[in-house]
Amino acid sequence: MQDSQAAELEKIQLTEIRNAIDAIDRQIQDLIGQRALCAQKVADIKTQGGKVEAVFYRPEREAQVLRAVRERNESLISDNDMARLFREIMSVCLALEHPTRVAYLGPEGSYSHSSALKQFGTSAHPLAVSTISDVFKAVEKGEADYGIVPVENSSEGVVKQTQNELIKTGLKISGEVDLAIHHCLLSVSHDIETIERVAAHPQALGQCEQWLKNNFPGVQLMPVESNALAAKMAKEDPTLAAIASEQAAQLYELHILEANIEDQKDNTTKFWVVGSEKTAPSGLDKTALIVSMPNKAGALMDVLASFANRKISMTRIISTPSVNKKWDYVFFIDVLGHQDEPLLQEALQEVKDKSLFYKLLGSFPVSPLD
Rank of each mutant, 00 (worst) to 15 (best):
H113G: 01
Q119V: 11
A138W: 01
S133I: 04
H98Q: 14
T169H: 03
T162W: 10
V149N: 01
L105E: 04
S123L: 06
K168E: 11
H125A: 07
S112K: 09
T162C: 12
S114C: 07
Y104W: 06
H113C: 03
D145E: 12
E108C: 10
S110A: 12
A116T: 00
L117H: 03
S155D: 11
T162R: 10
I148W: 02
S115L: 11
L127N: 01
P99G: 07
G170W: 12
P126K: 04
T169C: 12
P107F: 08
H113R: 07
Y111N: 03
R101K: 15
G142F: 05
D145S: 02
N153F: 15
A103D: 00
S115N: 04
I167W: 02
Y104N: 00
Q163R: 15
L166G: 00
N153D: 14
G170M: 12
D134S: 15
E165V: 11
T122A: 14
K160T: 14
K168C: 12
V135Y: 06
L105N: 04
T131K: 06
G142D: 07
G106A: 13
S155W: 11
P99R: 08
H125K: 14
G121H: 00
T131Q: 02
V151L: 15
T122D: 12
Y111Q: 04
S110L: 10
S112Y: 03
I148F: 05
V158N: 05
E156W: 12
E152L: 14
I167N: 02
P126F: 04
I173H: 00
G106Q: 09
V102M: 09
G106I: 06
H125P: 01
A138S: 10
K118Q: 13
L105Y: 08
E156K: 07
L105I: 12
K168I: 10
S154C: 02
F136C: 04
D145I: 05
A124D: 02
S133Y: 11
S123Y: 15
G147C: 05
A138D: 05
A138G: 07
K172R: 15
E156D: 12
P107N: 06
L171D: 03
S174F: 00
D134H: 15
V149E: 01
V135H: 08
L166A: 02
I148T: 03
A138C: 00
N164F: 13
L127M: 11
V135P: 01
F136N: 04
L171W: 05
K141R: 10
D134N: 15
G147N: 02
E140Q: 11
Y111A: 05
A138M: 11
Q119R: 14
H113Q: 04
Y111E: 05
E156M: 13
Y111W: 09
L105M: 10
S154E: 06
E108L: 13
S123W: 13
S155Q: 14
T100N: 03
H98W: 13
K172V: 07
V151C: 11
V158L: 08
T169E: 10
A124V: 05
G170Y: 11
H125Q: 13
F136W: 08
G157A: 08
E140V: 11
H98Y: 14
D134Q: 14
G109I: 01
A124N: 05
F136S: 09
S115Y: 01
N153W: 12
K172N: 03
L117M: 13
A124Y: 02
D145Y: 00
G109H: 07
T169N: 01
A116F: 04
T100P: 00
S130N: 10
V158G: 00
V129Q: 07
D134R: 14
V139W: 02
I167L: 15
